[in-house]
Design a protein around this nucleic acid. Structure first.
Length: 417
RNA sequence: CGGGCUGUAGUAUAACGGUAGUACGAGACGUUUGGGACGUUUUAGUCCCGGUUCGAAUCCGGGCAGCCCGACCA
């Protein structure tokens, strides 16, 4: 993509309201645009990142046997009445009436909808287990939005729901999803701790939050550096000693970027989602649910991967793999860079070409550092004298020259890292 | 939802109750080109409604919006 055509106005200053690093960099880089408090548009750079995160999550969900579906955003009141959450869910539902006077809510989560879907299809133990997930816009009538994408009123979430015959089977799958979640986080350049947490209004008997340690976080977690124990401070109060190994605990701020719930029969019982077991008995299905907020994850990645100049995207979620930057406006440099760009495109490389003639090198470099593409290629008179291109990784200081003839091989090996 | 703060060009900031100004940005032309250039020039603003006043960005009342703390969450 030619940067002169990219729909993005990269800014030198962040809006004064922005406080968190991720909010500042996302706003300055024009990844997102705020429409109202807690409501954001994703612009081309931001949406590219979002889609890469989405694809990682989809791959990992498919890898644990999930089948992708798409549930409605408009959710009828009747299902919420079955569990009582029409009134009790917090933050409250966005509710409204259709033209016939029927009440609806914009879906903030989908336990009721999917339990209804499944109870009309799952009849026998032969239909279990079953793993269904979706990636969809969620709406939450939050009291307060904060930190740019960290806490918003409309966001895209991956929600996976699992259905089992037995608690044992459900818990085994729960552990499997936890591992898949850790793979997702790792691919996103994050190293979270899974902490035992309070299930809250989603409910259930057990839950784990995936916490990324960060000063921006709204949560506090206790971590034992010796045995690896981690707990949410709300659940464990302010204990000082590790309950597992008696070492001293340390307290950290953290961002809750995903949450897994062992639901048991919390939804299947009131909604009568039963199956017939091998002996012919009727039993409520055992459920689990597992959510990741994609926008929050995107912000969290920045909180954990940045420097003073801007974002340092992990390769798998970067908006582009390569940033090709000509320096100097000479016809020779332009022609050479055009040629390199064409060959990179032919090789199906994911490249952003900063072809803007009116920008000085300083501005191009500053903006490149801000938007954080992992590998920068610079072409100038200086490099062309040596028939070379300069390569610099965003997370390193050093630059090196690579001969034009060897460029594509070099880039292929970089892409594999 | 409780408490607090703030609303002036796209952004950041000035203006005693008396001509709305400056910088950056954006546009045009020219000169520049290895770390956020330079000259000339153009552009654009007092959140909304009401009140006080000869006169309101400024004082008062009410809305609306945004932000922060709390609570809650992915």
């Amino acid at each position: 993509m030619r940067q002169s055509e990219l729909f993005a106005k990269i800014k030198k200053e962040a809006p004064k309201d922005a406080e968190s690093i991720s909010h500042k960099y996302l706003a300055r880089g024009d990844f997102i645009d705020q429409a109202a408090s807690g409501i954001y548009s994703f612009l081309p750079l931001g949406w590219r990142v979002h889609k890469k995160i989405e694809n990682i999550i989809r791959q990992e969900m498919l890898s644990v046997g999930g089948q992708e579906i798409f549930l409605p955003v408009l959710t009828p009141k009747k299902f919420w009445l079955e569990t009582g959450r029409w009134q009790t869910i917090d933050p409250p539902l966005f509710k409204f009436k259709d033209r016939h006077g029927s009440e609806l809510a914009l879906g903030p989560t989908h336990e009721e909808i999917i339990t209804d879907l499944v109870r009309r299809r799952v009849k026998s133990y032969r239909d279990l287990p079953l793993y269904l997930f979706q990636i969809q816009d969620k709406f939450r009538n939050e009291m307060r939005a904060t930190g740019g994408l960290l806490r918003v009123r409309e966001f895209i979430m991956k929600d996976l729901y699992s259905f089992h015959q037995s608690p044992k089977d459900a818990k085994e799958f729960y552990e499997k999803v936890k591992k898949a979640y850790l793979r997702i986080f790792k691919r996103c350049g994050l190293n979270p701790v899974a902490v035992e947490a309070d299930p809250g209004t989603i409910g259930g008997e057990m839950s784990h939050e995936f916490m990324v340690l960060s000063e921006t976080g709204e949560d506090k977690v206790l971590v034992c550096k010796k045995c690896g124990f981690a707990g949410n401070i709300e659940k464990f109060q302010d204990i000082k000693i590790c309950p597992k190994c008696q070492s001293n605990l340390e307290k950290f701020s953290a961002i809750e970027s995903a949450h897994a719930f062992y639901l048991g029969t919390k939804y299947s019982s009131p909604m009568v989602a039963n199956f017939i077991d091998k002996k012919g008995g009727q039993n409520p299905v055992i459920m689990g649910c597992y959510g990741i907020g994609l926008g929050r994850l995107m912000a969290t990645i920045i909180e954990a991967n940045h420097d003073q100049r801007g974002i340092v995207w992990p390769i798998e979620v970067a908006p582009f793999a390569l940033h090709l930057i000509p320096v100097g406006g000479s016809a020779k440099v332009t022609a050479a860079t055009d040629k390199i760009y064409d060959s990179l495109k032919k090789a199906a490389m994911d490249v952003l070409y900063d072809d803007r003639v009116e920008k000085t090198p300083g501005e191009k470099f500053a903006e490149a550092d801000l938007i954080g593409i992992p590998t920068r290629l610079v072409v100038s008179e200086k490099t062309l004298e040596k028939n070379s291109v300069e390569i610099k990784k965003r997370n390193e200081q050093k630059t090196r020259l690579v001969r034009l003839a060897k460029l594509s091989n070099q880039l292929l090996s970089l892409a594999k890292q």
